[in-house]
Design a protein around this nucleic acid. Structure first.
Lengths: 189, 189
DNA sequence: CTATACATGTAACAAGTTACATGATTAA
DNA sequence: TTAATCATGTAACTTGTTACATGTATAG
């Protein structure tokens, strides 16, 4: 059901089309809940059926613009109030780091270097967005600002982390008899 | 296919049963790729069929202990080498923060306080694990240590982040006309 | 005129969740 | 003896991905 609320949230920010929504899922929301157009269009049809959104405009090439309804806003509120958050995360790129012992040291380091490039790219994109976008007075857009901030912090952390992991591997963490990574617990204490 | 490699990785660390694996998915791997037993048992059967693991022991109550084969290790290596990482993440709890504008300020803050409790709990569990577990000389277990480190950093970051988000909301970030959260870009610069 | 971006949709499949179903061992 | 934990599995359903399918407007 998460996709449903992600769509409602975006439509609360601005009325827009399925195509526009798909675009948003590749920027702001990509950092918390990715989705493709093939999933978005059917869900929009269901949201219309349930009265949580309405079509309020049209454009060239069959473009349909949707807006959230008061019932749609209530649906978000009810979701936040009545369901338990799912605190799990899924990150394939981190599962891969988990498995890096299966590569020779130089290849493992190259893999991390590649990851680092991706993470800095995401980080810098978000930094630009924080600076350049007008966050305005719309409540939902202000919510988006909070989320972007998280994405930015997350990628900053990832960059620091891969640097740490690379240093560990260079120091022999993935060789038998090499140094076992020491606890680094400053942050909790 | 991620589940498959997560299972292979864990079996590279120690031979174990589906039940044991399920347990690991609620601790170390829970931070990157959660899974339930209903998904694990059928996948183990497929891994046996493909020759990537073998049953090497049994125990009471029909317990079956599996070990990774050389072909299984090669499968991990090939996965790392031949497939592009998926850098997307999924975090429902963050999508909820995105939507917090749909609650009155006091409720939004209560929601964040609840989140903070979860995040500190996870953080402290991981800190304990880093200190207490013997990370030994097994390469795969050393890989797990790298992953646990990430989980720990991630939850530290989340705690800091919810504190920031709560401060923003208290300062009126989710009220029209209130202060728009200012860019906090120190970390990139 | 032609490539690119815009724009919407469906179908087949893979992955993941929840619920169902069963039974053995152990500790209180 | 009874509750909790160990232990494995399947079935029905939901969610998410990849590929297919189509057509319009715009910029060079």
């Amino acid at each position: 059901m998460s996709l449903r609320y992600a769509l409602l949230d975006l439509l609360a920010g601005d009325p827009m089309s399925g195509y526009d929504l798909t675009g948003r899922f590749t920027v702001s929301l990509a950092n918390v809940w990715p989705a493709q157009h093939s999933q978005i269009y059917p869900e929009l049809a269901r949201l219309v059926q349930d009265g949580l959104i309405v079509q309020t405009g049209e454009g060239p090439r069959g473009r349909k613009v949707y807006s959230i309804t008061p019932a749609g806003v209530d649906a978000i509120t009810a979701w936040l109030r009545e369901t338990e958050p799912d605190y799990t995360i899924r990150a394939e790129s981190l599962l891969r780091i988990f498995c890096l012992w299966a590569l020779p040291t130089d290849e493992a380091l190259a893999h991390l270097a590649h990851d680092r490039g991706e993470f800095t790219r995401h980080r810098d994109e978000l930094a630009t967005m924080i600076e350049k976008v007008d966050w305005g007075d719309n409540l939902s857009r202000r919510g988006a600002r909070l989320s972007i901030e998280f994405g930015h912090r997350y990628y900053c952390e990832l960059v620091e982390y891969v640097d740490w992991a690379a240093a560990q591997i260079e120091a022999g963490a993935l060789r038998a008899g090499g140094p076992v990574p020491a606890p680094t617990l400053k942050r909790t204490l």
